[in-house]
Computed example of a mutant assay.
Amino acid sequence: MKVWRGTEFYGELPINERVLAVAESNDLAGQRKAADGRWVSATWTCE
């Protein structure tokens, strides 16, 4: 998955992660797959 905000490219996430929101602070909120296959909440920080 490629992560964009407007015309700015943030990076690419593996298939087992998904972004649901990008904050004004450039933090990302989403989900990642746990070892048991469930989707769990996750956050990432873009630098």
Score class of each variant (00 low, 15 high):
residue 44 W to V: 01
residue 29 A to I: 11
residue 19 V to D: 00
residue 33 K to A: 09
residue 6 G to D: 03
residue 31 Q to C: 01
residue 23 A to D: 09
residue 5 R to M: 02
residue 43 T to N: 15
residue 25 S to V: 05
residue 10 Y to M: 13
residue 29 A to T: 04
residue 10 Y to T: 09
residue 24 E to Y: 12
residue 16 N to P: 04
residue 14 P to E: 13
residue 37 G to H: 05
residue 20 L to I: 11
residue 4 W to H: 13
residue 25 S to M: 13
residue 42 A to M: 09
residue 14 P to A: 10
residue 5 R to I: 03
residue 14 P to W: 01
residue 9 F to L: 15
residue 41 S to D: 14
residue 35 A to N: 14
residue 7 T to L: 08
residue 44 W to I: 06
residue 28 L to P: 03
residue 38 R to L: 09
residue 19 V to W: 05
residue 24 E to F: 08
residue 31 Q to V: 06
residue 18 R to P: 00
residue 44 W to A: 02
residue 43 T to A: 15
residue 42 A to R: 00
residue 18 R to F: 01
residue 37 G to C: 13
residue 34 A to P: 10
residue 29 A to W: 06
residue 37 G to T: 02
residue 23 A to Q: 12
residue 30 G to K: 03
residue 36 D to F: 04
residue 7 T to W: 10
residue 42 A to P: 01
residue 18 R to T: 04
residue 27 D to A: 13
residue 40 V to L: 09
residue 11 G to T: 08
residue 13 L to G: 05
residue 9 F to C: 11
residue 24 E to G: 14
residue 21 A to R: 04
residue 15 I to H: 11
residue 31 Q to W: 04
residue 23 A to I: 00
residue 44 W to Y: 07
residue 28 L to Q: 05
residue 32 R to F: 06
residue 16 N to M: 08
residue 42 A to H: 03
residue 21 A to N: 12
residue 8 E to M: 11
residue 43 T to C: 13
residue 14 P to M: 08
residue 34 A to N: 12
residue 29 A to C: 14
residue 27 D to F: 05
residue 21 A to I: 06
residue 14 P to S: 07
residue 17 E to Y: 05
residue 11 G to W: 08
residue 19 V to T: 00
residue 4 W to K: 10
residue 5 R to G: 00
residue 27 D to H: 11
residue 3 V to R: 02
residue 30 G to L: 01
residue 11 G to V: 13
residue 33 K to N: 04
residue 18 R to G: 12
residue 12 E to R: 14
residue 8 E to Y: 02
residue 44 W to C: 03
residue 39 W to C: 03
residue 16 N to G: 14
residue 18 R to A: 06
residue 4 W to S: 11
residue 31 Q to P: 05
residue 38 R to C: 10
residue 16 N to A: 12
residue 4 W to V: 11
residue 12 E to Y: 10
residue 8 E to A: 05
residue 13 L to E: 00
residue 9 F to T: 07
residue 19 V to H: 01
residue 30 G to M: 00
residue 30 G to P: 04
residue 41 S to K: 06
residue 33 K to E: 06
